[in-house]
Design a protein around this nucleic acid. Structure first.
Lengths: 247, 247
DNA sequence: AACAAACGAGAGCAGTGCTCTTGACTTTGG
DNA sequence: CCAAAGTCAAGAGCACTGCTCTCGTTTGTT
């Protein structure tokens, strides 16, 4: 499993053969059809046989391209993570560099918009774990952390720019054990913000997704909130204050 | 659906026949086994045939007692809602009547403790909707709203007792459409708290469940937070401040 | 041209939800 | 007290699922 493949320079430089191109295309088709089934029927009902039927091929043939159902789920997972990450990046990049509250709101609204647009994909990423399925961390961690990395980046940039209130109200003590966890995060992500701000950031992170999950998963009753855009906007306003983002 | 059943006094007063008692017991066994399967394999993998095997009976026999798989899911849903509601009620009742912050924290911690103890049930109630399954509102609404009703009760009692900060910081405007939704809630639940407090309460509600869902669904990485009790305590402290609960 | 890899089709196994029929049992009414 | 009515478990069967294996065929390379 080492990466030492000295002969690869010659063998891998070749242009793709028609067969290879067809294979790549078929896998892309399988992912596309899988996404459609996911959107319509949900993750638990994702059926390789149904995908095969839509692909116009017998069920066993798809196993030439996808190892098993979990493998397809992983592909869809990565695909969805990246689509969400792209949407978030685009939304945040459209905000001026120094407008940290605007970036936070743009990120949150992008997540919500994507979640409402693709509820089944959102459920796959942030809902109940699929029983018996364990996402392979080495393939999903990087795309799966794009949003939180981006959010932390906004908070930390705001802190470095002096746009993050150091004094949070009310002051809540942070026990040493939690401080250790936060210190590890600070070291790994190369952050500057103090414990209190980081902890606030975590709460804001979970709160944003909590609000979106409630909406997407129908935890509000069907008629409790009709002005859901306004509700989310209001929640963002409060959370912005919780985070200490001055705007 | 009215409660007026004047003839019931005679016909329903009969003691249960042995057959009826056996039937009730069998249904209880099915629910118990279903809960075990739910806890081990998750909702999507809940199998009537497997329950039948554990019951020592052929699969078709279960259909004498439970209409179909969705019906069993509904029974488990109600069962779980009530178990959670009982746990929350017991935790809140153990706190002195005037200690509203303590009641809020007790409620939140009870929800989290139950969620960690019964992750599959929690996922069934608050995770991704099961595809193709629609909970029958007339049977699940009452048990399903016990926690939020209790939480709102705490907030409103605190407001009436003058223990809820009327001035929330930072002040965030509430658009008219959202105010309408909040007015409807206030009317239906007979509340006194003003719009800003209600809106804060909704945010706190979703944030508590967001934090719990992140933990139970494994959205934090496997090693990001080791001091999860402390993290949750901290989040409750901040949310208590967001809600305006003075303690 | 010869060969090996890749491929699609088909059969088959074990599992699922669910329906229907059959025969046995229990309860109840005449 | 006995037969009719109601209830029950069992089994066969249908359509679906994931997945494996084999068998020819196609494709690309040597």
């Amino acid at each position: 499993m080492t990466t030492a493949e000295p002969a690869a320079a010659k063998t891998k430089a070749k242009p793709p053969t028609p067969r290879e191109r067809a294979r790549t295309q078929t896998i892309a088709d399988i992912i596309r059809l899988g996404r459609e089934h996911l959107a319509v029927h949900g993750a638990a009902a994702l059926s390789l046989r149904a995908v095969a039927r839509d692909l116009g091929v017998v069920s066993s043939a798809v196993y030439r391209y996808v190892e098993n159902r979990d493998e397809l789920l992983t592909l869809l997972l990565i695909d969805a993570y990246n689509e969400l990450g792209d949407a978030v990046d685009a939304a945040v990049d459209a905000v001026p560099a120094g407008d940290f509250p605007g970036q936070f709101r743009a990120l949150s609204k992008a997540v919500r918009a994507w979640a409402v647009r693709e509820p089944s994909s959102y459920a796959l990423l942030f809902g109940s774990p699929v029983p018996g399925y364990q996402a392979p961390g080495e393939r999903t961690t990087v795309p799966g952390t794009r949003v939180i990395v981006r959010l932390v980046g906004i908070f930390d940039a705001a802190y470095r720019a002096g746009a993050l209130s150091a004094e949070v109200t009310p002051a809540v003590v942070i026990p040493p054990t939690l401080a250790e966890d936060l210190a590890a995060i600070r070291a790994e992500m190369n952050l500057a913000a103090p414990d209190a701000s980081l902890a606030r950031g975590v709460l804001v992170w979970t709160s944003v997704f909590g609000a979106i999950s409630f909406e997407v998963f129908g935890q509000y009753g069907p008629e409790t909130f009709t002005a859901r855009d306004d509700l989310f906007e209001h929640q963002l306003g409060v959370l912005q204050g919780v985070a200490g983002l001055q705007g």
